[in-house]
Design a protein around this nucleic acid. Structure first.
Lengths: 201, 201
DNA sequence: CCAGTATATATCAAACTGATATATCATGCA
DNA sequence: TGCATGATATATCAGTTTGATATATACTGG
């Protein structure tokens, strides 16, 4: 198999922001990238080891007194080059796995109320996600406008960086990618309405 | 591990339409479900065997003279029940892996023209897909309106079913799920414009 | 009659997933 | 003070999934 190893570049990319531990990386992905990406420990830790072996990252134990053992990884020049090369390579089209679409598609021979039920559940699920995203959006917009970084965000930025200027940049990129997620959900909701109308005819 | 085995239900669901071979199933997924699902032979053939072992499908060799060996699988009562049960179970939220979003996110510290280049490429890629989808949409809409099924579609429906009434139902479900894909792409294009505007400020 | 393509089944190493095991430190509260 | 709960942190692994490839037959046009 040709292998894609996107994880490698995701990790490398995050390390260009600042040195991190495997745990930090996981949290970063879960908090900030979850609507378009995911990684898991089973992938992160071996990748980190591999990066060290390939000379793309260095591993250092950071034991702050009275704190748990931490291994912090930093990107090397070679790693930066590999990351940069990857950015210029052709980008795969988005990959989607939508279980609802599958169920809906496969139910077309069944009574219509079955399909309506599926759509209504999907609608509710997506609306719930939209509410959450909108809340995050408001927090981010306010932070950017006021140049203040409330507790909700401090956690993320503690990891991501320190300086106020970096915070602004980070807030902005979080907001921009979140907007992608919001657009995607709104599209799904619009589709639900369209289908519901089609089914009621 | 708890195992998901969605493939099992995807296969079962397609077999509720009509008996098919592994090859048929793969083609069906590639042609009609590709914008929200994918399966591969490495998953389909073992799943088919497993379904037979579990008494959820039957395997029959259909050797039409002068044609290649074919194993056609049909769903059993037990299989139908399993499929029906799955439909009622909670549905996973859509899973997305968007490499462009990842690159864009990770590039926020680099010069803005890098980001602009990424977005422009994404835009072009998505616009290309939209053109294809729109073309399929037109074919499907025309087929439904005129109750005629042109060559483009005959291939799909040869697999999917025979009667004209079933064709209409199939055309409709293909159209409805295709609409989901179109909404999704339009949302991505709208996001591109939004970001481009943000970056130029 | 031959090359290229479509049909069709099958397999496998490599990669990925999600859950779990282990351990340390912080916090509140009874 | 002790003790449950939760956050921090690293690590592993069985079970799943992926994508590529091997094999073979039939069809199609030049």
């Amino acid at each position: 198999m040709a292998s894609k190893q996107k994880t490698k570049f995701a990790v490398l990319g995050l390390l260009t922001w600042k040195p991190m531990s495997g745990y930090d990386i996981k949290k970063m992905v879960d908090v900030g990238l979850s609507h378009f990406w995911n990684e898991n420990y089973g992938q992160i830790y071996p990748t980190l080891e591999q990066l060290v072996r390939d000379g793309m990252a260095t591993k250092k134990e950071k034991r702050i007194t009275g704190q748990r053992q931490r291994f912090v990884y930093a990107i090397t020049r070679k790693g930066q080059r590999a990351f940069s090369d990857w950015l210029s390579e052709p980008t795969d089209a988005p990959i989607v796995r939508n279980e609802l679409q599958l169920k809906f598609f496969l139910s077309c021979k069944l009574p219509a109320d079955q399909s309506v039920r599926l759509i209504n559940e999907y609608r509710a699920q997506q609306q719930g996600m939209l509410d959450e995203y909108r809340q995050s959006e408001n927090v981010l917009r306010q932070a950017i406008r006021d140049e203040t970084y409330p507790d909700d965000l401090s956690r993320i930025f503690e990891i991501a960086n320190s300086s106020d200027k970096s915070r602004a940049v980070h807030c902005n990129i979080f907001l921009l990618t979140l907007r992608h997620g919001i657009h995607a959900i709104e599209a799904r909701l619009a589709w639900c309405d369209e289908v519901l109308e089609n089914l009621s005819r």
